[in-house]
Each structure stands twice: as structure tokens, then as C-alpha cells.
Write a protein that binds this DNA or RNA. Structure first.
Length: 203
DNA sequence: GCCAGGATCGTCT
DNA sequence: GACGATCCTGGCG
């Protein structure tokens, strides 16, 4: 499987973008622009979950909850966490291979006033700096589970920033396979969900 | 500034 | 009946 060539900034991401290893898709999404309706921002933090990963919802096999993970790539997998927060993932890898990228943080760029109202916060750093926060700011709920990220209300465009440095480290908030360095961040970005540990490796 | 604890509910055992 | 891929608040220093 060969990696797609770099795309011009601002070009919509095609479905094939997601039809490769989740460990390629996760860092490639850093710097891409995600919009949902009138709101949006630049992706600055992601985490990869592959099918052989005990922390991945697909690890236990297909269920009614995780069936979207086993479907075609480029779809949104949205689920409820802690009974309160909707978390947004991008399904990756060819159909039948269940893997996904958790979108953990955005740098807000579009519809900031609307996001402030939805979040009840004013500071830009508090709008989308966490997986539960960004779904609230963007208005993403369970009803979008299974919809294509290449179609409305989603809009996903190629890397908006040039010369971005992506760093990786251990994932956050999980109890299984915590040692896997599958969290990816835009280096030095202040909109990530939390500062990364010292031992982060340059990727 | 840091940390402990509570909220809340769908999914799986 | 237990458990989260989380967030916010309040208490303490």
C-alpha cells in the first residue's frame, strides 16, 4: 500500500485518504481543516486506535455500538463517553479492517462566537481543547454516527499549514495498551488537550 | 496551581 | 451491575 501524494492545502480529503494504515492517517490529519456547519478549526491533536489494540472499541469484535468501525473508511464514528460526552472519530483502513482516529483537539478558526455560546466559555483555548469539548463546540452528536466525513455537514480539507511539526507520545485517558505512542500533536500548539510529556518523540 | 471526586447513561457481561 | 478514548468544580496550599 503506497501513501497518497501530498495534496495542495485546502483541497477536500477524498475517501481514499482514509483507506490506509490508521497509523499513517492519524499524523496526516494534524494540520487539516475540519468544519461542521458554520464552525470549524485546524486539527492539532489525534489518537490512533487499530483493530489489534485492546483499547480500541473494535477489539472485542463487531457489536451494534461499534459496527461503523467495520464499515468503509472516511465515515464518522461517534459514541457517548461517560454518559455525557460525544467523541468524534474518523474511520480508517479499508472496509473490514476496523480502526479509527480519535479527533482530540482543534485550533478554532470558524464560527468562534457560536462555539463560545455552545461551550459557555470565552477563551479560545477552552473551546475545542479536548475530545468532548470539540464535539460540543461543533455541534456533533450521536445522530452523525456513520455519516461520511466527505459530505455535509462535515467538511475536511487538506493540511492548511505548511512546515507543521508533528510529535507523538502515549495516549490519554485509557487503561489498556497505554504504552503505545499513538497520540499525535502539532508541536508547540497551545490548543492541544494537555501539554505532552517530556518523553514525546519527534515523529 | 494541583488533585480528588462527582455527573450520567449506553453498552456489554 | 460495572465500566468507561471526559469535563468541571471545589477544596487546599
Amino acid at each position: 500500500m503506497s501513501a497518497p501524494a501530498l495534496r495542495p492545502a485546502g483541497e477536500p480529503l477524498p475517501t481514499e485518504f482514509f483507506a490506509r494504515s490508521v497509523h499513517e492517517v492519524a499524523p496526516a490529519l494534524i494540520g487539516c481543516e475540519l468544519r461542521v456547519g458554520a464552525t470549524g478549526g485546524v486539527i492539532v491533536e489525534t489518537e490512533a486506535y487499530d483493530a489489534g489494540d485492546p483499547a480500541c472499541h473494535a477489539y472485542i469484535g463487531p457489536t451494534t455500538r461499534n459496527e461503523v468501525l467495520f464499515g468503509p473508511p472516511g465515515r464518522a464514528y461517534v459514541y457517548l463517553s461517560y454518559g455525557i460526552h460525544s467523541l468524534l472519530n474518523a474511520v480508517a483502513e479499508p472496509e473490514g479492517s476496523a480502526a479509527a482516529v480519535l479527533i482530540r483537539a482543534l485550533e478554532p478558526t470558524e464560527g468562534i462566537e457560536l462555539m463560545r455560546r455552545r461551550r459557555g466559555r470565552d477563551r479560545d483555548e477552552e473551546l475545542c481543547s479536548g475530545p468532548g469539548k470539540l464535539t460540543e463546540a461543533l455541534g456533533v452528536g450521536l445522530e452523525l454516527n456513520g455519516t461520511a466525513l466527505t459530505e455535509a455537514p462535515f467538511e475536511l480539507r487538506a493540511r492548511a499549514w505548511s512546515g507543521i511539526e508533528v510529535v507523538c507520545g502515549e495516549r490519554i485517558g485509557i487503561t489498556k495498551a497505554v504504552e503505545q505512542p499513538w497520540r499525535h500533536c502539532a508541536a508547540g500548539n497551545r490548543f492541544v488537550s494537555r501539554p505532552w510529556p517530556r518523553d514525546l518523540l519527534a515523529a
